[in-house]
């Protein structure tokens, strides 16, 4: 905190960059006033760090050679039958739940982040074009968006996943599965970005600075990207943060339904699916801890997104 406070004047001296313009003084001040936002930010940071340091866990759960079947279904350490080093117990294959959660968290965060990046890119591009060009192009893009909004996002994600499975014949490598997950999430969540950006662009495109840019003869793509886009990007960050939480949940749902990460390389959703079979048999820890992690992660990111939405809303300032 102290470091960022001292560095603030340095950045202020330079012409304001993109981030400085978005996170201007108001946003930072709002963050410092909101205890909830700070807690959520710290929690999110901890999750990211945990995922980053997953390799420091007692076991690599993705390496079947490190799993001993004889260690399967050991309860958490603090219960009577617990055994070190399995702090949170083991699953049916002898996988350390803590290590599996850390690695699963990494997959969830990667898929969530890439999914958001993809959906934001698609959504911003389409929204920008629709708003700026208008007319038939606008109508076409927005009607497609309307149609897509009538389906729940998870259905579209399942559809993409199903098509990919059918095309590949059910045998996909891990990067391919990750790619399909990112693609299915990306294609499910672009509509909100497109709508938001389009409405901002509609407002901005008639402003004087855009007219001026046109007069000096800049091409439409240059005007769209260099001049209009930076002024519409603020709300996108709020949506992206909230969608990040949604993307994590979507990935977990897909994996829980069995169309996401395989059992040998579990994400949080896969772990919950594995544990679900044992939930009523007394082996609660296999599903409970990954479930708790998922819930906390999504809660933290969501709180952060909520705060950001309010902070960026000029009417609430």
């Amino acid at each position: 905190m102290a470091a960022s406070a001292t560095s603030a004047p340095v950045t202020a001296a330079k012409p304001p960059g993109l981030f400085a313009r978005i996170f201007d003084g108001d946003v930072w001040a709002s963050f410092r006033r909101s205890k909830l936002a700070m807690v959520a930010a710290i929690a999110t940071l901890i999750f990211f760090l945990a995922a980053l340091l997953a390799n420091l866990g007692p076991q690599d759960p993705f390496d079947p050679a490190q799993l001993e079947l004889i260690n399967s279904r050991i309860p958490p350490l603090w219960t009577a039958d617990g055994q070190p080093p399995f702090l949170l117990g083991t699953d049916d294959q002898g996988r350390d739940i803590l290590s599996a959660i850390l690695h699963g968290l990494r997959i969830s965060l990667i898929v969530g982040a890439l999914g958001v990046l993809l959906s934001a890119t698609i959504g911003i591009a389409l929204g920008l074009v629709a708003g700026y060009v208008g007319g038939a192009v606008d109508a076409l893009i927005m009607r497609v968006a309307d149609v897509q909004l009538t389906f729940p996002a998870i259905l579209i994600a399942l559809l993409v996943d199903g098509v990919a499975k059918a095309v590949s014949g059910g045998q996909m490598s891990t990067p391919a599965i990750l790619g399909v997950l990112v693609l299915s999430i990306g294609l499910s969540f672009w509509v909100q970005y497109a709508r938001t950006v389009r409405s901002s662009v509609m407002v901005e495109k008639n402003r004087d600075y855009v007219q001026a840019a046109r007069l000096i003869g800049l091409s439409s793509p240059v005007i769209m990207v260099r001049h209009v886009l930076p002024n519409t990007i603020g709300p996108v960050f709020a949506i992206a943060t909230i969608n990040f939480a949604l993307a994590i949940i979507t990935e977990a749902t897909l994996s829980f339904l069995g169309s996401g990460m395989p059992d040998t390389q579990p994400s949080l959703g896969t772990l919950i699916r594995i544990g679900n079979r044992y939930l009523f048999s007394g082996e609660w820890w296999i599903a409970a801890f990954p479930g708790l992690t998922l819930a906390l992660l999504v809660l933290a990111v969501n709180l952060l997104g909520d705060w950001l939405r309010d902070a960026l809303n000029p009417k609430l300032r």
Partner: peptide
């Protein structure tokens, strides 16, 4: 589950 167990044993 048997298959997953076999996979672990062969990995070793």
């Amino acid at each position: 589950d048997i298959c997953r167990a076999v996979i672990g044993m062969l990995a070793r």
